[in-house]
């Protein structure tokens, strides 16, 4: 492998890892607060992509109605991002209200909520398939690909946007969790869920806020993903969701830095395996590495083994 293609792969890995990181952040946020693996998260990513598709085509005037005005594509892109994030956050919150909160109120075990999450994911996937049909949809090009070449390494503007977005989201979430009051509440809930309501912290508000954050990040990832790879299908969230979950666990689930590092790590492993071996070996080798890694360091990179009381 010469040095040029090496840097090309590094860049690709950063972009690919950014998607994993963005989705893994959603897993890790919810887990940090509720100790719940929100298995529907991958499908919220998918829903985000679809909502983005409808918003974008609506704003472009190619779907259903013709808008009386024409917006520049960059404005449409930004508007799509914002509207999609808001709407998808609504989906996430609805999911929490309808499926998870009643169970939590009843004091059902964690496993039952996890199963409910899995089922909610299936409903989103198959409901989409049943309602919109199996035909793939093409996302309209909002940002025209401009290919820059620096020293033989070529990259497109969308690739830069993706990487920058992931970094920005990381800094944003770190600030929220570390510096703000609601972030402190989130950390407090994960630390001791029984004592926190006694201190006058509105636990449900914090949980809803967590879901808003996680879902909107998934929506951001969804819109960016279909901007880079403009094909939408109902099962697009399943595989990437499971892998992002793995990334979150490898980083140490519940830790934002962990999700971020884990996402990039998985991206790097996948890209470099595909670069060196036949690409069909990608899953095999990347999961093999993860298996060995987790056997050696069971709590992930940033995870701390909790002391258990008997």
């Amino acid at each position: 492998m010469d040095i040029q293609s090496f840097f090309q792969d590094v860049l690709n890995a950063f972009q690919w890892g950014s998607f994993y990181a963005l989705i893994a952040l959603g897993y890790t946020l919810v887990y940090g607060v509720l100790l719940l693996i929100n298995f529907a998260h991958g499908d919220i990513f998918m829903v985000g992509a679809y909502i983005g598709f409808f918003v974008a085509t609506f704003l472009l005037g190619t779907y259903a109605v013709h808008l009386p005005f024409h917006l520049p594509h960059l404005v449409i892109f930004v508007l799509t991002l914002v509207i999609t994030m808001i709407l998808t956050a609504g989906v996430g919150v609805t999911l929490e209200r309808v499926a998870y909160r009643p169970l939590r109120r009843k004091g059902a075990g964690r496993l039952y909520i996890v199963i409910t999450a899995l089922m909610a994911g299936l409903i989103l996937e198959n409901g989409n398939l049943a309602l919109l049909g199996a035909s793939r949809k093409a996302f309209p090009t909002l940002i025209h690909d401009t290919v820059y070449t620096v020293a033989g390494v070529s990259f497109t503007n969308i690739r830069i946007v993706v990487i920058l977005a992931a970094l920005a989201v990381f800094l944003f979430l770190e600030t929220i969790v570390r510096k703000t009051k609601i972030g402190m509440a989130m950390r407090a809930i994960s630390f001791d869920r029984v004592a926190v309501p006694l201190m006058g912290i509105p636990i449900d508000t914090v949980i809803v806020f967590t879901f808003i954050l996680g879902s909107s990040m998934a929506a951001l990832a969804g819109v960016l993903f279909v901007s880079a790879y403009p094909v939408l299908e109902p099962y697009m969230g399943a595989m990437i969701g499971w892998k992002a979950f793995i990334a979150a666990v490898v980083g140490g689930i519940g830790d934002i830095r962990g999700a971020f590092i884990g996402g990039f790590l998985l991206g790097f492993i996948e890209i470099f395996v595909a670069a060196v071996f036949p690409s069909t070996f990608r899953d095999l080798i990347s999961f093999g590495i993860l298996l060995i890694f987790l056997s050696l360091k069971p709590t992930g990179i940033f995870g701390v083994a909790r002391a258990q009381k008997i």
């Binding site: 059902a108 409910t116 899995l118 909610a120 299936l122 409903i123 409901g127 049943a130």
Partner: peptide, 19 residues
């Protein structure tokens, strides 16, 4: 296709009322 919408839905209802 709606089979795979209905079955998870049934299971969620089951989890809600008889977890």
């Amino acid at each position: 296709l709606f089979k795979w919408v209905l079955i998870p839905l049934l299971l969620i209802v089951l989890m809600l009322f008889r977890p």
